[in-house]
Computed example of a mutant assay.
Amino acid sequence: MNTKHRKVILVITLCYTVLIFYFMFLAFGRAEMVDQVTGYSFLFLPDEFFRLPGLSNLLHPTLMDVWALGNIVAFIPFGILIPLLYRTGFFRYMILFIMCILVLETVQALTLLGSFDMNDVIQNSVGAAVGFGAFRLGFRTKRVWRNIAATCISAIVLMIGIWGSFGIVDNAFTKEQGTFVALNDLKNSGIHSSAGTKRDSFQIGEQNVEPQYNAYSTEGQQTVTYTYTLGKKELYLYLNFGIPNQEEAYGSLSVSADGQEYLSMSAEDPSDEPEMSSIYLQGANELTITLEGNARIWDVGFREMKYNWNW
C-alpha cells in the first residue's frame, strides 16, 4: 500500500471514528437529557446480548432490534480499516479494541451521556471481530477493488454466520412458558386435599362461567386460606376472580408468596365482569391465597419458565 492510499484510509478512519463518537455521546438527544439523569448507570452483567432480530422481526423491526443489530454492524469497519493502517494480529487487535470500548463506555456513564453497558461492549467487539475476519479473507490480492468486493462479501457471510449462531445460543438460553399446571395438582399444605376440585358453573354479570380446571371459594366460612408449595420455581401464576350473581357483593382476594403480597383485589358490584390476573413469581417457595366473603377464583394454575433443553 502506497503513502497516498494510506492517507486516504487514515482520513476515512478518522471521519468514521468521529461519526461513531457522535452517536455514542451526542445523538438521540443525549445532551438534552443529562439534566434528567439522577445518577451513574453501570450494567456489568450482560443480558440478552445474543438476541438479534429474526427474519420476521426485520419486516417490522423495533427500536431494540435496530439497536442490537446496529451495535454489531457499526463496528465492522474498524476491523477492516485498522489492519489496513497497522500490521497487527487478531488477539492484539481485539485486546486493544476491547480496552478502548471499555474506556468509552465508562466515559459515557461518567458524563451522564449514556450508560456503561456490557451488552454494548460484547456486541461492539463482535462487530470488530467480524470486520477483522472479513479483512483477512478479502485482502489477498494486489487489486484494490477486487479486495474491497471480497471483503464486503466476506463481511456479509460472517455476519450471517454470527446471526445464525446468536440465534441458536439465544434459543438455547431463552426461557419460555411451559404447559399449564392446575394449582390443585400440587400438594396442598393447608385445608384439605380436595380444595379446588369443585367446578360448578355460575354466572357473573352476563357471563356464564364454567371452570375447566378448578374453583375456589370460602366454602361458607368468612375467610379461607389456601397454601401450596411451589418448590422455588420461576413461573407465571394465572387466575380468574369474581363474585357470582345473587350473592352479597362482598369479597376480597389476596395472593402472596413467601410473605410478600403480589395481588390484592376486592369486588363490590356483582354485575362486574370476571377479572383475570397473571403474576410473575421468581424463586418463590410457599404460595398463599386468601379468600374472604363471597369471592371466588377459578382456573388457577401456573406455567413454569423453562429452557428449551429442559422440556
Rank of each mutant, 00 (worst) to 15 (best):
N2I: 02
K4I: 04
H5E: 13
L10K: 07
V11A: 07
Y16T: 03
V18G: 09
Y22P: 10
M24T: 13
M24R: 03
L26N: 05
V34K: 08
V34F: 00
G39Q: 08
Y40L: 11
Y40N: 02
F44G: 03
L45K: 12
E48L: 14
L52M: 00
P53I: 03
G54S: 12
L55S: 07
L55K: 01
S56V: 12
N57F: 01
H60N: 10
M64T: 03
W67C: 01
G70N: 11
V73Q: 07
I76Y: 00
I76W: 01
F78N: 10
L84A: 11
L85N: 06
R87T: 03
R87F: 01
I95W: 10
I101N: 05
L102C: 09
L110T: 14
L112R: 15
S115Q: 14
D117Y: 00
S125P: 04
V130F: 02
F135M: 12
R136K: 15
G138F: 07
K142F: 05
N147K: 06
I148Q: 01
I148H: 08
I148W: 07
A149K: 14
T151S: 15
T151V: 14
I156D: 02
I162F: 15
G164M: 08
I168D: 02
V169G: 05
F173A: 12
T174W: 01
E176N: 09
Q177N: 06
Q177D: 02
Q177P: 11
G178T: 02
T179P: 06
V181A: 13
N184S: 15
N184Y: 04
N184R: 12
L186K: 12
S193Q: 15
S193Y: 09
T197C: 09
Q203M: 05
Q203P: 10
I204D: 04
V209D: 04
V209G: 08
E210R: 12
P211I: 04
N214E: 03
A215E: 08
A215N: 07
S217A: 15
E219D: 09
Q221N: 15
Q221T: 12
V224S: 02
T225C: 05
Y226G: 13
L230P: 15
G231H: 03
G231F: 04
G231I: 05
E234M: 04
Y238V: 07
N240F: 02
F241T: 04
N245M: 13
N245Q: 10
E247Q: 14
Y250W: 10
G251R: 09
S254Q: 11
A257W: 06
G259T: 08
A267K: 09
D269M: 00
D269L: 07
D272L: 12
E273V: 01
M276L: 00
Q282D: 08
Q282E: 03
Q282W: 04
T290C: 11
N294Q: 09
A295P: 08
I297D: 11
D299Q: 00
V300Q: 05
V300M: 05
G301Y: 04
R303Y: 00
E304I: 08
K306A: 10
K306S: 10
K306L: 11
N308T: 03
W311H: 11
W311V: 10
